[in-house]
Structures are given as C-alpha cells and as structure tokens.
C-alpha cells in the first residue's frame, strides 16, 4: 500500500502544472455571518456617531454669518485721539481694547435715524446677558459739537441706556475721524438745522481692529447675534 502524502511544497516557478489544491474554507458559514453582523453594527455605530456628533462639530467650526459687513483687515481702528467722553476724559483706544465697541456718529437734535439707532442699540444691549453687556461699550460721537455740549450729550445717550457713552470734540477733529470710519457729515442742503450724516454702525473687535459695519436698519436680534460672535 502506498501511503497518501501531502504533496511536497515546491517553488511556484518550478512547474506551471503545480497548482496547489483548493483550501478548505477557513470559517464556517455561521462564523462568516457573525463577522458580517459585526461589520454592520460597526458601520451603524459610526453612522450614528456621525449623526450625533457631526452637527456639533460642524457648528463648532462653522464661521458665524454676520448680518453686517465683515472687514478683513487686521489694521487697528482709527484713533479717537482728540475726542473726549462727556466726563472730560480723553478717549483712548488702548483703554477700549478687550471690549467690543459699537460706534455711532450722530447728534442730539437728530430727528430720525439717531434716536431710532440708539433705541435699537438699547434693545440690543437689553438682550445680552449681564456678562456680555459688561464687555460691550456703546459710543455715540457727536457730529454737532457746536450744539451738543457735554451735559446735553450725556443726558441724551444715557436716556437710552445708562451705560451708553457720549463722545465729542472739535468739529475738524471729528470730521477727520469720522471720515476714517467711513462716515461723512455736513449741514443739510436746505440750510436748516439738521445735519446730513452717514448712519452706519461700526463694530470694533476686542483686538482693537474694525470688524463689522452694520447698515442703519439692522435688527437688534441680528446685531446681538453679531456682537456675541465678536466677543472673545
């Protein structure tokens, strides 16, 4: 009798006829099904994790969509040197750093856009948390320093919110500074007592750079959302 032997392994290149015998299946069908089930569970868990964590991760990295126009230069906001608070204290950009500063150019005899904007700013501030409010300053720079003396301006701005601050200075200094903030002002063409002026609201970031410009008709909800995004 000839004993059956397993064929001796030979180098693959030795003969083309040396085809290895078919191997028996390594797993039984039940084990294969189990592996597939595990894979399906793994994929399902991954999809679940993606569904749960994905939106949070995206929200974490998604930039805030500002209602205002975002400026992309890191150049510091134009200096307010030469202007003073209604208390007489000079305005210092260094002292403002660390806070979000909302700047509006207006005047106390302004019939329409100034009270509207200041009221909107007051409602915006009211919608912020106390901690947020502490880090936001609202400055109204008078474009009518001839009529807006310090007590008048202080009374006007604090009538909207006790934390609002009035800023004023000589008209030529105010004119130069306003221009750098994209704002113009001039007596109206009709020769009346009103002053034509830009009504944009300007946001300075905590880093001292001009960050956002809002049109006069921005809603307080949108403004509050943008201000929160500016906060550090």
């Amino acid at each position: 009798m000839t004993a059956l032997r397993a064929p001796t392994p030979r180098p693959a290149a030795e003969s083309a006829r040396d085809v290895p015998p078919p191997r028996p299946p390594r797993h039984r069908p039940g084990a294969l099904a189990l592996r597939h089930s595990r894979s399906l569970v793994t994929i399902a868990l991954a999809v679940l994790a993606l569904l749960v964590a994905g939106p949070r991760v995206v929200a974490r990295f998604q930039p805030h969509l500002y209602a205002g126009t975002v400026l992309q230069s890191d150049r510091p906001a134009p200096s307010l040197d030469g202007l003073t608070f209604t208390s007489g204290q000079p305005v210092s950009m260094e002292a403002l750093e660390g806070d979000v500063v909302l700047v509006f150019f207006g005047y106390t005899n302004c019939p329409d856009v100034c009270p509207t904007t200041m009221a909107a700013l007051a409602r915006t501030m009211a919608g912020l948390s106390p901690g947020e409010r502490d880090r936001v300053r609202v400055l109204m720079v008078s474009v009518d320093p001839a009529r807006d003396d310090a007590p008048t301006l202080a009374g006007y701005v604090t009538s909207f919110d006790p934390a609002f601050e009035g800023v004023l200075g000589p008209v030529d200094v105010t004119d130069r500074i306003a221009s750098l903030y994209g704002v113009y002002f001039a007596p109206d063409d009709a020769g009346g007592s009103t002053i034509d002026h830009s009504a944009s609201l300007i946001g300075i970031g905590p880093d001292g750079a001009l960050r956002v410009v809002w049109p006069p008709n921005v809603t307080e909800q949108a403004l509050a959302s943008d201000v929160r995004a500016l906060l550090p």
Binding site: T69, V70, L71, Q72, S73, R75, A178, S179, L180, Y181, G182, V183, Y184, F185, A186, D189, D196, S198, I202, L210, V213
Partner: peptide, 23 residues
C-alpha cells in the same frame, strides 16, 4: 474680492456744483 477696509467718508462738490458725498 477681499473686504479690505472701509472707504473714507467725505462731502465734496462735483463738476456741476452739487454736493457729492460718500453716501
């Protein structure tokens, strides 16, 4: 195009003698 910075505000006159402003 980048939003570089605010253009300056101004109130000047135009060639017809009317006021022309940044607005």
């Amino acid at each position: 195009l980048p939003r570089i910075e605010l253009a300056p505000g101004y109130a000047l006159v135009d060639q017809r003698g009317g006021q022309y402003t940044s607005e």
